[in-house]
Design a protein around this nucleic acid. Structure first.
Length: 542
DNA sequence: GATTAGAACC
């Protein structure tokens, strides 16, 4: 069965499927009918049209699926290549698969495929080892292993190149180990491996994200001096940092001198700048930048449009944002699902459920693929307006993909409306549908059960939530309700159990408990004794 | 003809 999450991802990536189909048709042109009885060789005769898909073809397809985040398709093609066509993957194909798995955060499988390549007698090249470095450095932050891969590849006669080192440096920078990254840069220079703009930009970014703007500025200037001029991406990183500290004059200065410095601001540059202007209440100036962009022949993309729509919504102009979205085709804006979700969520917050429904209908008419987030916004909007029946009706409609947020929203509103049975039924349906409850869902359920004075069930629900880790907030919520229900003995045994498990009860939990006890007036005879015992347990004073 | 590195919105 396909999980909800996977179905959600399919919707999220539906736009990129078109690209895949185009690439697939190009590849298919090179394929003739599969003939399992003929020779298994995949190498065409000289001058003959290839009868079998070549590793090139497989690799093009695998890259397209990998780019769209469809790792299962990549793996299916990889298996097909090995089993159906008996055409052993070469180092390039193995590298694509390892990279795809690493990017999809499936490290064990990535390493297993790499090992399979070595066992199959395929010799890894620099690109293959670099993907392993990326896995350990950028994804797992296991730098000892990343260094080990570099030593190992060198021993095998494979020289690490500028990409290998830049990848390692990027990982170190993201892990806030800038000084160590600078050490790697020195090592590169010692080995006469010339750094490029990809090597320096992550370092500029690390300085920027830690507020070390002056060092970032100096490095950008130094890059020019050492013959590795910063490019648009480097400047975008710097501009993002300047925008955060509201140094808009400096951003203007950088843009003004861009020609002289040899770089061209792109749609990302203007989007960053406009987003900063919007965030700090300078919407008019942001819209001016849109004109500047258009004047340079740069078309706003979906991200730019989103920044502007969000800007309107923040300025209490959500209805205006809605009108722009509805006219997006005429304005030649490529409105996407995120744009609609942004405006719809703001309209939902403003209680404009009818406008939310109108935009939802507009999306469907325009053929813009909706996703779970869209449905959650629509459902939430209807629930907020007290239209639970309509919400349930849309929820039950065909083609609807509910996720954890949708379920939790509905459960919450059923609970608030006192429709406890429906709330419970949805919770069980969710579990049956393999949608895993999160701490927010458990919080709603605990409240729901406690309101009905089903304290033991609420405690059971809390124990179940521990599969997802201990949440002090959820624990505080449960104990608050137990105090209100005067279930002091239950609190005591729960606390004993929690402390035995080694979970940490923080200050917020203790304060919440004390407040709850005070509110309930638990200061008489036997109760005050139990209360004192409970507090001693928490504070470890007995 | 294919493989490895950096930036913006929700």
């Amino acid at each position: 069965m396909v999980s909800h999450d996977a179905r959600w991802r399919q919707r999220e990536t539906s736009a990129s499927r078109n690209d895949i189909v185009i690439k697939f048709s190009e590849v298919v042109k090179n394929f003739s009918k599969k003939d399992p009885s003929s020779s298994s060789s995949c190498v065409p005769e000289v001058g003959a049209r290839p009868r079998w898909p070549h590793p090139f073809d497989y690799n093009s397809l695998m890259k397209a699926f990998s780019h769209a985040g469809e790792v299962e398709e990549v793996l299916r093609l990889f298996r097909e290549m090995k089993e159906d066509f008996h055409c052993g993957p070469d180092v390039v194909c193995y590298t694509s698969v390892v990279d795809s798995l690493a990017t999809a955060n499936r490290p064990e499988e990535a390493v297993a495929v790499f090992e399979e390549m070595v066992s199959a007698g395929v010799i890894p090249d620099t690109a293959a080892y670099t993907v392993l470095v990326k896995l350990y450095s950028c994804h797992l932050k296991r730098f000892d292993s990343a260094y080990e891969v570099i030593r190992w590849m060198t021993k095998c006669g494979c020289v690490p190149d500028v990409i290998t080192y830049s990848t390692l440096i990027a990982g170190l920078c993201w892990a806030d180990r800038v000084e160590e990254a600078l050490g790697v840069l020195d090592q590169m220079l010692e080995e006469e491996c010339r750094p490029n703009v990809h090597t320096y930009t992550p370092i500029v970014q690390a300085y920027c994200s830690r507020g070390r703007i002056e060092e970032a500025r100096r490095l950008v200037d130094a890059m020019d001096a050492i013959g590795c001029p910063p490019n648009t991406v480097t400047y975008n990183v710097l501009i993002q940092a300047l925008r955060k500290i509201r140094a808009f004059d400096e951003v203007e200065k950088l843009l003004k001198h861009s020609d002289a410095k040899g770089w061209k601001p792109d749609v990302v540059t203007y989007s960053i700048y406009m987003d900063g202007l919007c965030e700090f209440g300078r919407a008019d100036k942001a819209w001016e930048q849109l004109q500047v962009m258009l004047g340079k022949g740069l078309r706003p993309n979906a991200v730019t449009v989103n920044i502007l729509l969000d800007c309107l919504c923040r300025g209490s102009k959500a209805p205006e944002a809605k009108r722009l979205l509805e006219r997006s085709a005429e304005l030649e804006w490529d409105a996407d699902v995120v744009n609609y979700n942004t405006v719809m969520s703001r309209l939902r917050d403003a209680g404009k459920w009818l406008s939310v429904l109108k935009l939802f209908s507009d999306m469907i008419k325009k053929g813009i693929a909706t996703n779970s987030r869209t449905f959650s916004i629509v459902i939430h909007s209807l629930c907020k307006a007290g239209k639970l029946d309509w919400a349930k009706c849309i929820f039950n409609s065909r083609g609807f993909v509910a996720n954890i947020v949708t379920y939790t929203t509905l459960i919450h509103y059923f609970h608030v409306a006192g429709k406890v049975d429906e709330a419970h039924a949805l919770f069980y349906e969710m579990v049956e549908e393999n949608v895993v409850p999160n701490q927010i869902t458990y919080g709603v359920m605990v409240k729901c059960l406690c309101r009905e004075r089903k304290f033991l069930e609420a405690i059971g629900c809390f124990y179940r939530s521990l599969e997802d880790g201990f949440s002090p907030n959820l624990f505080a919520c449960l104990t608050y309700w137990l105090v209100r229900g005067k279930r002091l003995m239950e609190i005591l045994s729960l606390l004993q159990w929690i402390l035995r498990q080694g979970y940490i009860i923080d200050f917020c939990v203790v304060r919440g408990l004390i407040n709850a006890f005070c509110r309930e007036g638990c200061c008489q005879s036997r109760e005050i004794y139990i209360l004192s015992h409970v507090l001693d347990k928490i504070l470890g004073t007995r």
